[in-house]
């Protein structure tokens, strides 16, 4: 019969429509604004309403998520910030759109380079969030941030990140990428142990 296909199609959309309410009733309040609710709405079994109610609730980003790079600093016991970057320049060399600018510190007396950046800029209007800088950094000093809520009204003022804006504490890094952080720390500890063992031998 002509029109049967359309009716069948409409019945499927109707079922989808009804299912949103059925699932809402079945799951009740737990479905929204709770971590389990968000997890449920992004798993493979989800039926019914699919929407994440940003900004009231946010879809958590996975560990590997990358947005804009940041520089990791460690805070020593006396409260001093020690930036991990040694200004070796690998990030600036590997960056595909060349959005990283680094000025290396030189010792005013000897003129020799000191392993810390004097200036460090990232133009986030150029950055393509590819993550190559973080991938190839041998010192785990530059990492990709999870913070995506950075819209602004003026790009000339706010879109060139300098050292101050880029630097974020190690604890922050450990909190957004716990698995990577742990793997790196383990590798470092193993390396140190190996070194000690070889020195002892």
């Amino acid at each position: 019969m002509f029109g049967l296909g359309i009716i069948r199609g409409l019945s499927i959309t109707l079922r989808h429509f009804v299912m949103t309410y059925v699932d809402d009733i079945r799951k009740g309040k737990r479905r929204y604004h709770t971590p389990e609710g968000i997890a449920y709405r992004s798993n493979t079994e989800v039926t019914g309403m699919f929407t994440i109610q940003y900004p009231e609730e946010k879809l958590p980003v996975p560990e590997e998520f990358r947005y804009i790079p940041f520089l990791v600093y460690e805070t020593s016991e006396d409260g001093m910030r020690k930036i991990r970057c040694t200004s070796c320049g690998i990030c600036a060399k590997v960056c595909p759109p060349q959005c990283i600018w680094i000025v290396r510190t030189t010792d005013p007396d000897t003129g020799k380079p000191i392993p810390t950046p004097a200036e460090y800029y990232i133009d986030i209007d150029l950055c393509m969030s590819c993550g190559l800088c973080a991938e190839y950094c041998p010192f785990d000093a530059i990492k990709m941030d999870h913070d995506y809520e950075i819209a602004s009204f003026d790009r000339m003022k706010h879109h060139v990140y300098n050292l101050e804006k880029l630097a974020k504490p190690l604890e922050y890094y450990a909190s957004i990428r716990p698995v990577n952080y742990k793997a790196e720390e383990d590798a470092r500890a193993a390396k140190a142990a190996a070194k000690q063992a070889s020195q002892a031998a």
């Binding site: 994440i52 940003y54 900004p55 946010k58 879809l59 980003v61 947005y67 804009i68 986030i124 209007d125 950055c127 393509m128 969030s129 995506y148 809520e149 950075i150 819209a151 602004s152 009204f153 003026d154 790009r155 879109h159």
Partner: peptide, 15 residues
């Protein structure tokens, strides 16, 4: 409004 990101995720766009 300028939204950085390449590309901005939907949540960043909403922001």
């Amino acid at each position: 409004v300028y939204i950085p990101g390449c590309p901005p995720t939907p949540q960043a766009l909403l922001n």
